[in-house]
Each structure stands twice: as structure tokens, then as C-alpha cells.
């Protein structure tokens, strides 16, 4: 009799304490304001030395500060490693010059590439995108393509992370041929526009 009372009491304790809702508690959705940077696009790039200092240096060398910081635009930010791989392609022998010693022609080419990372007067946001393609025109006049893809999570179809994909037309003449890159951090809001950070593993500056 005593034993059954103890057993019942124990079961009771388990029932009462076992299903605490707190178990499921996570951090919740991120604060709306977490992505608000309160600095301009270029200042943000400047502040993230490990990720973007080469990009910021190139923007300044090419005199594109105003275009990058123009209000209401979208900037797709390639990371340092992407630019490193770009120079590695240009100079396979690893003998690339310091950035300050780039020739006017090289700077012109780099400026052309950076302009294709700017979507002027349009804030491209995840909420406005779907798996179907939507098209914009970059500051450099090239056609850009955006869409959203969703991964699987533990074999649950479409339950994984959703990625924004940025594609750029690299085709010659009338043939459209897009090279794409996924965005690894999206929707950073600077004081003048919106920033999406591009994957650096596979993407090479200039969509090479």
C-alpha cells in the first residue's frame, strides 16, 4: 500500500513537472531593429574590416562613394574572399600589385563590376520575392535577376532556410545567360538603402 502511494505520488510529480512549456522556448523572432545599421552603406562596409575592407577600398579608389551611398538603392556586397579570388584569376602567378597601384584601366573595369552590384532606386527585399524570377537593372545597365529558393530541412521538403538568389546576365549580345550567387545575409538596412551580403565560397567578384 505504501509502495503504491509512493508510485502514484511519483507519477503525479512527473505529470506535473514533465511538460513544462519552457522547454520549447527559443529566442523568438529577431528584433525588427536588429538589421537597422544606422550608418550609410559605405560606412557599414568600412566598419566590417574582416568581411569588406577590400571592397570599401576599391569603392573609394574608383570614386563610387556617391553611387553606393545613393538613397533608396540596393547594394549586393561581395566579400573580401571573392575579390581575392578575382585577383587570383587576373594574376595566376600571385604577383598582383597593391590596390593603390592599379592602373586607370583596371580601375575602370573594377568600377564597371561594382556598378553591377548596385540596383539604383529600388529596394529589393525578401518579402517581395518568390521562387519565380523577377528582374531589375543594375547601375551598370545590366539585367539582374532575383528569386527565393527554399531548402529542405531533415528531409522535410521546403521546411529549411530560404535563400535569396541574385543572378546577373553575363551573356553576350541578345543571348541572356545568368550566373547566380546566393545571399548569405540579407536585408541589412543602412541609412540610405538595403544591403545583401553575397556568399564568398563560390562567388568571385565580377561573376567570373
Amino acid at each position: 500500500m505504501k509502495r503504491s502511494i509512493i508510485a502514484i505520488l511519483f507519477a503525479g510529480v512527473v505529470f506535473i513537472c514533465g511538460c513544462n512549456d519552457d522547454y520549447f522556448t527559443d529566442g523568438g523572432l529577431p528584433d525588427e531593429k536588429a538589421s537597422v545599421l544606422n550608418v550609410s552603406t559605405l560606412d557599414y562596409l568600412d566598419s566590417q574590416k574582416g568581411q569588406f575592407d577590400t571592397l570599401a577600398t576599391l569603392i573609394k579608389l574608383c570614386g563610387l562613394e556617391a553611387e553606393v551611398n545613393k538613397p533608396g538603392n540596393t547594394f549586393l556586397a561581395p566579400q573580401n574572399y571573392s575579390i581575392h579570388n578575382y585577383f587570383k584569376l587576373l594574376f595566376p602567378e600571385d604577383n598582383w600589385p597593391p590596390l593603390t597601384a592599379l592602373t586607370a584601366e583596371q580601375k575602370e573595369e573594377i568600377a564597371g563590376i561594382i556598378r553591377n552590384y548596385i540596383i539604383p532606386d529600388k529596394q529589393v527585399e525578401r518579402s517581395g520575392l518568390s521562387p519565380a524570377y523577377s528582374y531589375e537593372t543594375t547601375r551598370g545597365g545590366t539585367k539582374a535577376r532575383f528569386n527565393l529558393i527554399r531548402e529542405d530541412y531533415l528531409e522535410n521538403v521546403n521546411m529549411g532556410a530560404a535563400y535569396l538568389v541574385f543572378g546577373l546576365n553575363v551573356g553576350a549580345g541578345n543571348v541572356e545567360q545568368y550566373r547566380s550567387v546566393i545571399v548569405v545575409t540579407s536585408g541589412l538596412r543602412s541609412t540610405n538603402g538595403i544591403i545583401h551580403v553575397l556568399d564568398s565560397n563560390t562567388h568571385i567578384f565580377g561573376f567570373n
Partner: peptide
């Protein structure tokens, strides 16, 4: 391969074998 298509669909194979970028 067209990497702009989601993982849970069959990604199309592009006609040009080296249409993709350097590392893709």
C-alpha cells in the same frame, strides 16, 4: 547546373557546359 533553382527541385542542366562561374 542552374544553381538558382531550389534544392528540392531537379536543377536544370544548362546547355553550355561551362556556363557557370569559376568555382561552380
Amino acid at each position: 547546373i542552374d544553381f538558382s533553382v531550389g534544392e528540392n527541385e531537379l536543377r536544370p542542366i544548362l546547355a553550355d557546359p561551362i556556363a557557370n562561374g569559376e568555382r561552380l
